[in-house]
Amino acid sequence: MASYVGKRLLMAIPILFGVSIVIFITIKIIPGDPVASLLGPTGSPEARAALTERLGLNDPWPVQYVKWLGHTLTGDLGTSIARRSDVAPMVLDALANTLILSAAAAVIAIVLGVAVGALTALRRTGVLARLGNALALFSISVPQYSIGLLLIIYLAAGAGLFPVSGMYAANGGGGFVDLFNHLILPAVTAALVPAGIIARMFRSSVLDVMSMDFVEALTARGLSHRRVMLHAFHNTVPSLLTVAGLQIGYLLGGVIFVEAVFAWPGIGLLVYQSITQRDLPVIQAGVLVSALAFVMLNLVVDALHGLVDPRIRA
């Protein structure tokens, strides 16, 4: 197992390397430079030129990339061009905030997805099942951005049940209850698409398993229903893990719209802002830690696979 994890971690290195090159080239190709977006209309041409030189933006691209890589390998993620402060703490703070949001969304998505999936698989004809199917389809199709705004308008501003935006009350002392209240709407919004997908996948996987011969065979051998169900569910777990793992991975990057609507100070919002400002050091660091988190998550999912399905361990 240890060598398997080690191998996977080694494989992450070329992935991250590739990601960093792609990001670098993309940012360089699209028009716009950080100095122009930073200075607004009042910067003089001379001052802009001097700042461009100082930021090393006049170097050839490969030189800029190698310099950045060198610093990154020594643990120095650089200084944000637009924010004039160190990138590392900025990105780590934002990543922590995104992980909080993603974790909450993942819990909701899995619980909701499994519940709706099981319900619609086992009661294929009832009203509840039809409703469940419709809900699952709806949550997959509807854009998160608009759902987030609707929740804000009706549940937060209208009914006053939840705070509108941010992670903590502007004037409060913070604390877990405050965070929890601020977390609910964005987490539910972010959970909708993965919940729908998990529900659909889990439904078909339950149907598959329930139609397998071994279920009838176990029942025929006189196993208690509870034991039969245990065996049946054991067989749905690998596919559930796969789809849930993938969906949670997507959550890490996919919460960007949710973060934008709810002003949640996470990595998606940070990278998005930094793209509009062409703030390359922050974009690179943000994407890299996201990619790293994604790789680690997949690793965890694969390890869990090995735990529940002995065939994979070999």
Binding site: L155, A156, G160, L161, F162, P163, N171, G172, H182
Partner: peptide, 9 residues
């Protein structure tokens, strides 16, 4: 969980 979420604003 909704409760009095907006009171601390």
């Amino acid at each position: 969980c909704g409760g009095s979420a907006t009171s601390g604003g």
